[in-house]
C-alpha cells in the first residue's frame, strides 16, 4: 500500500541558506509519527511544506507525495483541494490562530461547510450550526452554544486550542499535523489537550504528524519519531527504541536533558 504521506529528499532553501536538507520519511494511513528537534531545526517548515504553504522566499526541492499528489511545484489550485480533505493543521499559538473578529461558531462552520460541499451535501444553515455545536461538544468544550456565540478574546487559551482542534477535525482530514499544539498552554491544560488529541485521532482513524521539541509529550501520542537537527534527520525509529537506546549523540543529549529534568522534579517532590 502506498503511504499517505511520503517525503523524499526534501530540501528547503532560502537564498544560499539550507534550512532543511535531504529529509525523507513516510507515514501510512492511521499512523502516528513525531517530528522532534530544537527550535530552528526545520520541524515547522517541513509541516508547512507538506501543506504547500511555505513563504514565497523559501524554495522547496525533492518530493512530497501527499495522498497520491505531488506537492512540490504543484499549482495552487490543486493544492487548495488537498488542504482540508487530505491534511489539516493545528497550530502552536491558540491566541492568534483564530480570527479575532469572527464568532467561534462561524469560524468552525467555514471548514465544516467546505467539507460538506466536498461530500456533495449542502445542508441548510441550521443543520450546519447543529453540527458545529456537535464538534465543539466533541472537543469537550463546556456550553457549546455559548462558545459558538463568543468571539475568540472571550474564551481562554485552552478553549481556543480546543476550537482550533475542532476546526481541524471538522475537515475530517486523512492526516492531521499538530505543530506544537500544547507549547503555549500551561501544564495541566497541556495534558488535557494531548489526551483529547490522542483519543480523537484514534477515534477518527486519522494519521498524525506531531511536531514538538518536548520528548515526553511526543512519547505519549506517537508510535515512531524522527529526530531533526539543523534540518537533517539524525535518528528515526519507534519511540521506545529511540528513547531507550538513542544511537545518535544529539538524541542522547535530548533524552538525558529530559531525564535530568524529570529527576530534578522527582527530587524536589
Amino acid at each position: 500500500m502506498t503511504p499517505l504521506l511520503s517525503v523524499d529528499g526534501l530540501t528547503l532553501k532560502t537564498g544560499d541558506k539550507t534550512l532543511v536538507s535531504d529529509l525523507s520519511f513516510s507515514l501510512g494511513a492511521g499512523e502516528r509519527m513525531g517530528l522532534i528537534g530544537e527550535s530552528g531545526s526545520g520541524k515547522s517548515l517541513t509541516a508547512m511544506a507538506v501543506t504547500g504553504l511555505l513563504p514565497k522566499s523559501i524554495v522547496p526541492a525533492g518530493s512530497i507525495l501527499l495522498d497520491g499528489q505531488q506537492v512540490v511545484g504543484t499549482l495552487e489550485r490543486t493544492l487548495n483541494g488537498l488542504r482540508g480533505s487530505s491534511v489539516a493543521v493545528v497550530f502552536q499559538e491558540p491566541l492568534t490562530a483564530l480570527d479575532p473578529l469572527m464568532k467561534i461558531g462561524t469560524q468552525v462552520a467555514g471548514p465544516l461547510g467546505r467539507r460538506l460541499a466536498r461530500e456533495g451535501k449542502s445542508p441548510p444553515r441550521r443543520e450546519v450550526d447543529r453540527e458545529v455545536l456537535q464538534f465543539l461538544d466533541h472537543v469537550a468544550l463546556p456550553q457549546p452554544e455559548r462558545i459558538a456565540n463568543s468571539y475568540p478574546h472571550e474564551i481562554s487559551g485552552g478553549q481556543r486550542q480546543r476550537v482550533a482542534i475542532a476546526m481541524a477535525l471538522a475537515c475530517k482530514p486523512k492526516l492531521l499535523i499538530a505543530d506544537e499544539p500544547t507549547t503555549a498552554l500551561d501544564v495541566t491544560t497541556q495534558a488535557e489537550i494531548l489526551k483529547l488529541l490522542d483519543s480523537l485521532v484514534r477515534e477518527l482513524g486519522m494519521a498524525l504528524l506531531f511536531i514538538s521539541h518536548d520528548l515526553p509529550v511526543v512519547a505519549t501520542v506517537v508510535d515512531r519519531v524522527t529526530v531533526l537537527r539543523n534540518g537533517r534527520a539524525v535518528e528515526e525509529g519507534p519511540v521506545k527504541a529511540v528513547f531507550d537506546q538513542p544511537r545518535h549523540d544529539y538524541t542522547k543529549t535530548l533524552v538525558e536533558a529530559a531525564r535530568s529534568f524529570d529527576n530534578a522534579l522527582e527530587g524536589t517532590a
Binding site: 495552487e76 488542504r83 482540508g84 480533505s85 489539516a88 493543521v89 492568534t96 480570527d99 471548514p111 476546526m167
Partner: peptide
C-alpha cells in the same frame, strides 16, 4: 501575516 490566515489556508480556504 496573521496565523489565522495560515490556519484558514491549511483548512482549504482559497485566496
Amino acid at each position: 501575516q496573521n496565523d489565522y490566515i495560515t490556519a484558514s489556508r491549511t483548512s482549504g480556504t482559497s485566496w
